[in-house]
Simulated assay, not measured.
Amino acid sequence: MQRQYNLVVNKKKVYRLCKELDILEPQRRVRLKHPRRIAMNREITGSNQLWEIDVKYGYIAGENRFFYLMCIIRCL
């Protein structure tokens, strides 16, 4: 509209007009790629049934490098 008619229209006004004319597209919904499986309220009856992994990373300023630390915990 600015190029053709030399009009400056705010984006809020454009949104309001599109909403009144019912020409808005529905917004997309964000879907989780990997559902979280939390180990709370689980009944563990034997060994090697539950393992937990924690990955952390940090930065070494003197060497200008990153490092990764992975901890594996076997429960019960």
Rank of each mutant, 00 (worst) to 15 (best):
I53H: 04
H34S: 02
E25A: 05
D54C: 05
R31M: 08
I72A: 11
I53Q: 03
I60R: 09
Q4G: 09
Y68P: 00
V30I: 12
S47R: 11
N48K: 13
L69C: 10
C71V: 09
L21T: 01
Y15K: 08
I44T: 04
L21S: 02
L24N: 04
C71S: 12
L69R: 11
K19P: 01
I23T: 09
K12N: 11
C71M: 07
V14A: 10
I38T: 08
Y68V: 02
F67N: 03
I23W: 12
N10H: 15
N48G: 01
E52W: 12
K11A: 08
K56M: 05
Q2M: 09
F67Q: 02
R65D: 01
L21D: 01
R74T: 03
L24V: 07
D54S: 11
L21N: 03
R3N: 14
L24M: 13
K19L: 04
C71P: 00
M1E: 13
I38F: 15
N10S: 14
R3L: 11
I73H: 14
K19Q: 10
C18H: 13
V8A: 13
R37C: 08
M40D: 08
L17M: 10
Y5W: 10
W51A: 01
R16N: 10
M40P: 00
N6L: 12
R31C: 02
Q4C: 11
E25N: 06
N48L: 06
K33M: 11
K12Q: 08
K19R: 13
C75Q: 07
K12C: 04
W51T: 01
S47T: 03
L50Y: 11
Y59P: 00
Y5R: 11
K33H: 09
R42S: 02
M40A: 08
K13L: 13
Q27F: 09
A39G: 06
K56Y: 04
R36I: 07
